[in-house]
Design a protein around this nucleic acid. Structure first.
Lengths: 353, 353
DNA sequence: CTGAAAGCGCTTACAG
DNA sequence: CTGAAAGCGCTTACAG
């Protein structure tokens, strides 16, 4: 009935037990805790196992042990977008380094719109790290229902939802304050697109940053309704950054500065501006957010907020593993320092209206 | 006040069956194949499940289904290095997009030196994609022992080891030929470091590329033993690229061109050269390999080989899923087109000796 | 040191 | 449409 080519049946612990003449218990110990059996038993069992190419089935082992040996990272955007954003990749790197430390793997969960809830429910993970999650999201209920620990990075700190953040409001305040102090009054703000699988999010780091911008603008008598202050949103990719730049150029009413919430978008804008013959910062200034590696080597170098992306990932993962082990007792809402990085992409505007 | 609902015991299919008055079979069908039971039964069961916050345990489900619902990617280098290389990230993105398509997750397996064999043996994956693997590697035996399908990207095509590659030899030939035709005779070649978890690899794409370089050099009467032709190796990071550049400058015998096997290393070299006051390509030329995004926006733009990284990942993943499903029958060794990309980082050397 | 046996929580072929 | 029962392959508390 089955097309049994060579190995008709997988070799199990039972086969090894039978052939070696020991019990399943002994075979199990031979692999997991040799000190519990005699040296002779261990050798015999291992020999038989080796000859038959046996190794404990991870699926059965994990099931018996009631753990997966992996933590999950729920990608905030479609995988195609997430991987184009070096900031996200650094976060993942930080998470991964902690997984490595604890001998776990890192499971990337694509945020398929329709099925993200199912994906989260059925993912083979012992815990979950999410990016940009608010308590009001439907997905939070799903995770809670699963009763696995989770931590959110760049989400909104809430009770029962451990988080790792920088002070986005203050960081945004600082960079906008610098932009305004430099003389800019005509500003395009480019925000982040929403987490891909949630349609009705009201609370987010985007809002925190907008609050910060607004607070910086207030002393200058500006707010988002003023003419000259416009807001946009796009995915975090170079291409969409370029599109925003084209949009601004096409509008015939170019701002003197573009304030983005993401370096990768800022770089997209810069590249497009350059391609279209605009000089940065003489003709237009651009500032970013994140301080990805590329921000320092694009010419001119990008003024931005340095975020400790890898550290965010690491701290979140460390928290998560503590929670999984049940030893977690520390502060549930971490705030990590950021740093304003002044470089050449921000200059004095040609004319201040 | 149900103590046992709190955290004493997890709610299982048995609880739902008992409380709803239906069998475990019916409960299972309510979640997996509602058409097999009556509408009424389905509603009743779902209601009870909802009230109790029940959802089939993924661990048990996967065990019963004998599949993990995830494929693994064995990182070629330490996670810290792998994530700094946009080429690798693009490959992962390609793999991930296919996982998303098939409703699977993507498990990243950190290549911890000591335990990579164990990691591979125990990873909760239905198949494995590796980067830069040769048949002679110890890890191959481990994977085979696990009897899960695997595909290698940028490895050496071998029987029973499906692979996805470009023609590295020819690509390397073309770019070296261009370098030589441009007039360079004093060349530093910067290769890739070995796959982190294997110490004695003789066969690799690095060697294929060296063959290509050599073939291009031959008509010019050059080979690796010639004075002026030097070879180096480093991790694929900007920092190590910079180190190579410093090494070259420090040697007092600067080549006229640096030929690297990785854009990220090329960019590191370029940044360091620039920082040290050398002009590219007037004072020194640099060429890369991969054509990562950054290669097009660094100034001067990088001459390189365009590799379809994302496509490599996608093709490898598609192969792997076919193998997992047992429907695989096509060509086992894929070669994908590459493209020589001429940009400004390669120029005519100042003096041709 | 050793082994019998009770789980771990599902899925599904089979019979009614 | 429905349910009893046989797996899936391990781990480990317990008794000898």
């Amino acid at each position: 009935m089955d097309e049994k080519n060579e190995q008709k049946k997988r070799i199990t612990i039972n086969d090894i037990a039978r052939i070696s003449g020991y019990s399943k218990t002994a075979v199990s110990f031979a692999f997991n805790d040799p000190s519990r059996i005699s040296v002779k038993a261990c050798q015999t069992i291992r020999k038989v196992a080796e000859d038959l190419g046996y190794y404990p089935d991870p699926l059965a082992r994990n099931f018996s042990l009631q753990r997966h040996g992996s933590i999950g990272f729920l990608l905030p955007q479609d995988i195609h977008y997430s991987f184009q954003n070096p900031y996200i990749m650094q976060v993942v790197e930080g998470i991964g380094s902690v997984c490595q430390k604890y001998g776990n793997t890192l499971t990337l969960i694509p945020p398929l719109n329709e099925s993200v809830v199912d994906a989260v429910r059925s993912a083979a993970v012992d815990g979950l790290i999410t990016q940009g999650m608010g308590v009001e999201m439907e997905i939070v209920d799903s995770i809670r229902k699963r009763k696995i620990p989770f931590v959110t990075i760049d989400g909104i700190p809430s009770p029962d939802m451990p988080s790792v953040n920088i002070d986005d409001r203050q960081a945004a305040f600082e960079i906008m304050d610098l932009v305004l102090a430099t003389g800019h009054r005509s500003i395009a703000i480019v925000g982040l697109s929403k987490v891909s699988y949630e349609k009705n999010t009201t609370d987010s780091i985007q809002n925190k940053r907008l609050e910060g911008y607004l607070a910086a603008m207030e002393p200058y008598g500006l707010d988002f309704s003023c003419s000259g202050i416009d807001t946009y949103t796009c995915e975090c990719t170079i291409d969409e950054g370029r599109q925003i730049a084209r949009l601004l150029i096409g509008s015939g009413n170019l701002p003197t500065c573009v304030v983005t919430m993401s370096d990768i978008v800022a770089i997209g804008c810069m590249l497009e501006f350059s391609d279209q013959g605009l000089r940065i910062p003489q003709d237009i200034s651009v500032v970013g957010f994140d301080n990805i590696q590329e921000a320092s080597f694009i010419i001119p170098a990008l003024t931005t907020i340095d975020q400790p992306a890898s550290e965010k990932g690491r701290r979140a993962a460390e928290m998560l593993f503590s929670m999984i082990k049940g030893t977690y007792a520390a502060e549930k809402h971490l705030f990590i320092p950021y740093r304003l990085v002044k470089r050449e992409s921000l200059g004095v505007p040609k004319e201040t209206p």
